[in-house]
Design a protein around this nucleic acid. Structure first.
Lengths: 197, 197
DNA sequence: TAATTAAGTAAATAAAATTTACTTACCTGA
DNA sequence: TCAGGTAAGTAAATTTTATTTACTTAATTA
């Protein structure tokens, strides 16, 4: 039985790659369809054959990124036991991703959320999946007595995500370097133990 | 000595008010210059007399908002002693603002950061001022022995801002109600004491 | 092999933002 | 008091981009 995938049309692949290239140096807003077409070596019309519009193309690129990241996370968590240990690893993996993929950090943290449509995209579906994984770990931690039971899991998740994102935001905005392990250690410590002396 | 302010030209005021009105129901991206002109009862050209472009007008509206908010914070903090108490009040005030000004929450959290120019705007200058105030309180707390001294103040600030923002983000995106005091209590508790059982 | 269909092009159209050239009215200082 | 500048404002042209349309070509399949 031969595979049904007849390998994507070359035009589509070139368009996606062109978008990735351009995003390396420029913000989504400033990239024009004309530029994407030139970079890809196709005509503007073809872009609309494969993607609803510019934003749809962005979401496609983003989905690919999240797919890779979720697989990564899955792998990273293997063999790690205990809710706190697992959360710590997730924090580490997330920071490592932001540090190594500045372009995606910029897109995710600053450039994609300003459209309702993002929250209906497949990319966002994957974010929600990640979300569910974290909530699961938190609930498990509460059940096992590792995590306080008097805080709603959603608050804990928001604290983790929020602290993570904000810690990377300044790095992204002002292009400062990120010390992954150190940052992960401080954030985990802070979330786990609080700031009170 | 009479004041030098000869009161703003009526056109400018009408343009700013029109932008505020439109932002109530629509996202920045979808609002057009033509609409702003109609809503303000002026011609499109006049908008460019007073503002560099659409984004500049947004930053102007945002700056006004931050000015009011910073005054509010200043007032809210009066008579409150102790770093933790002051941080708790800041958390409360911030959530209250997001809850009562959903439009600004949306703009601040989702719609304005996707342009480099925001980070050079006067609006952002005020954000940095707020930032400095918080860092000051944290350092004071460390000096007084109320706050752990083994965490860099910037991480603590990021945890506070980040947790705050993320907690409000879902509310903003999916238009859920915000229970200000309850949310403030959970967030303060979480940041101060950590999640470990 | 005729009919479909997918890949792709080229050019037209539409929708916005932005610029330009032009009024008016009102101060203001010699 | 009036010539000249300047701020407020308009109307229309221009530019820039995104998006649509109508068309070709090559491959596929029934």
């Amino acid at each position: 039985m031969k595979p049904k995938s007849t390998s994507l049309p070359p035009g589509k692949k070139k368009i996606v790659q062109a978008m990735r290239n351009l995003l390396e140096n420029r913000s989504f807003e400033t990239i024009t369809i004309a530029e994407i077409a030139v970079e890809a070596g196709v005509t503007e019309g073809l872009i609309y054959k494969y993607f609803k519009d510019k934003r749809d193309l962005l979401h496609h690129v983003l989905r690919e990124h999240y797919e890779i990241f979720l697989n990564q996370i899955d792998r990273d968590l293997q063999g790690i036991d205990g809710a706190l240990n697992r959360l710590k690893k997730i924090i580490w993996s997330s920071i490592e991703r932001y540090a190594n993929h500045k372009v995606f950090a910029r897109i995710i943290l600053l450039e994609v959320r300003n459209s309702e449509r993002y929250f209906e995209s497949e990319a966002y579906t994957l974010v929600q999946k990640f979300n569910t994984i974290i909530i699961g770990i938190i609930k498990e931690g509460i059940a096992q007595g590792e995590i306080r039971s008097d805080l709603p899991p959603a608050y804990i998740r928001n604290a983790i995500f929020g602290t993570l994102e904000h810690s990377c935001l300044n790095r992204v905005i002002f292009d400062e370097p990120v010390a992954t392990s150190e940052t992960a250690r401080f954030i985990s410590d802070l979330i786990f133990n609080g700031i009170k002396a």
